[in-house]
Design a protein around this nucleic acid. Structure first.
Lengths: 205, 205
DNA sequence: GGCTGTTGAATGAACCGCCATTCATTTTTG
DNA sequence: CAAAAATGAATGGCGGTTCATTCAACAGCC
C-alpha cells in the first residue's frame, strides 16, 4: 500500500512508472495548475491507467508534494555544495543565483510547478513547503553571514532578510519567465543583473 | 442580473452587502486558501445567504478577481503618487517599499490573499493578474529609469529586472510575515534592511 | 395614520455534474 | 501457475450554482 521507494530497476528498459507519472504530472500541473488538473489527465500523459497512480502515490496531493520535495531537495543539494566551496563569497552568491536559475531553465515546467503551484494550498504550503523553504533560506543566509564575518559583506544587514529578498527576487524573475515566453537568453541576462544588484548592495566598503 | 454599482444606500444602517461579502471572503480565503474555501463559508462569515453572493458576483472566481483587482488598484494609486513626487529618487524607492509593506501590514489578510491566492489558478493569474502586475512593475521601473537618467542610479541595470527583483523581495518578505507570527516591528525592520540593500545596489558611484 | 398591492432583494434547500478514489478483473512476470 | 502489477469502469460525495419562495420597503389610497 505505502509507496515504497523500492525503485526496483525493472529491467533496463521500462523507465520506472513512478518517474513517468511524476514527469507527466509536472507537465500537466505546469500547464493547468494543480486544482484544474484531473488525475485522469496525469494518467493519460504518463501512458498509464488512472488506478496505477494510486499504486505509487497516496493521492493527488501526494503527487504534488513529492514533486515539490524532490525538486527542492535536488536544488538544496547542489546549493549546499556551492555554499561550502572555497570560492570567494561574491562568487558563491553569484553561482547560487546562476545555478538556481540555470537548473530551472532546463526544467521550465518544474520551475512553474515550484513557483506557482507551491502556493496553491495554504495547507500544503504551510505543512510541507515552509520547512524546506527555511532550509533553503538558511543555506543562503549562511553564506551571507560568513561573508560578513570574514569582512567581505557589510555587517548591518540581517542575513536572513537578505536571503529572503534574494529568494523572492529570483522567484519573481522565474515566475515572469515561466509564464512569459521563456527566452533562455533573457533569463541569463536577468540572472546577471540581479546578481550585480545584490552584490553591490552587499559589498563592504 | 448584472452587479450594478448602484450601491443605493439602503438606509444609512446596512453596510453594503457587497462590501461585507468581500471583507468576509478576504478573511476566509486568507485562512483556508481559495480552493479549500466553500462559498457557504463566505456566506456564513458575511452573515448572508449563499445565494446572495450570486447577486453581487458572477461566481466564486469573480469574488477572488474582484478582491485582487481592487486591492492592487488601491496600491497602484498610492504608488503612482509616490513615483511622481519630487522627492529624491532614493527616497521615492524607500517610500515605495515602506508603503507597500506598511499598507499591507494593516491588512494582513489582504496581504495573504494577494501574495498567496494570487497564484492559485494559472488561468486567473495569466488572465487578470499579469496585466496589473505589469503595471505595478512599470511604476517601479519608471522610477528606476528616471533615476538612471538623472544620474542617481547606476545605468548598467535593466530597470524592469530591478523592479521585478524588488517586487519579488517584498513579496517574499510579506509572505513569510503573513504566514508566520506577523510581528509588525519585524516587518518594519525587514523593510528597512531591504531598502538599504537595494539602494546600495543601485547607487551610482 | 393604517391598509394593501407591487416590486426587487434575499433566502437556502435541493440539484446535478464532476472527478478523486476504489476494487473486481485482467495481464504480466518469474 | 501463483503472485504481483496494472487496468479502467463504477461509485460516492462534495460543493458551486440555481430558483421557487419569502420578506421588506414603499407608494398610493381611503
Amino acid at each position: 500500500m505505502a509507496v515504497h521507494s523500492t525503485a526496483k530497476k525493472r529491467k533496463g528498459s521500462a523507465p520506472d512508472k513512478r518517474d513517468r507519472i511524476l514527469k507527466a504530472a509536472i507537465q500537466v500541473f505546469a500547464k493547468n495548475g494543480f486544482y484544474a488538473t484531473r488525475v485522469s489527465e496525469i494518467a493519460k500523459a504518463a501512458g498509464v491507467a488512472d488506478g496505477t497512480i494510486y499504486l505509487y502515490f497516496k493521492n493527488k496531493d501526494d503527487v504534488l508534494i513529492t514533486i515539490f520535495e524532490e525538486g527542492i531537495e535536488q536544488l538544496l543539494k547542489i546549493l549546499r555544495e556551492v555554499a561550502e566551496s572555497d570560492d570567494t563569497f561574491e562568487s558563491r552568491i553569484r553561482r547560487i543565483i546562476e545555478l538556481q536559475l540555470g537548473l530551472l531553465e532546463e526544467q521550465r515546467d518544474l520551475a512553474e510547478v515550484i513557483t506557482v503551484n507551491l502556493r496553491q494550498s495554504s495547507r500544503l504550503l504551510k505543512q510541507y513547503a515552509t520547512p524546506l523553504f527555511m532550509q533553503y533560506i538558511d543555506v543562503i543566509a549562511g553564506v551571507v553571514r560568513e561573508g560578513q564575518k570574514e569582512g567581505a559583506f557589510r555587517k548591518d544587514l540581517n542575513p536572513r532578510i537578505v536571503a529572503r529578498s534574494l529568494f523572492g527576487a529570483l522567484d519573481a524573475i522565474l515566475l515572469t519567465w515561466a509564464i512569459g515566453e521563456g527566452d533562455p537568453a533573457a533569463l541569463r541576462k536577468a540572472a546577471s543583473h540581479c546578481a550585480s544588484l545584490f552584490l553591490e548592495g552587499l559589498r563592504q566598503r
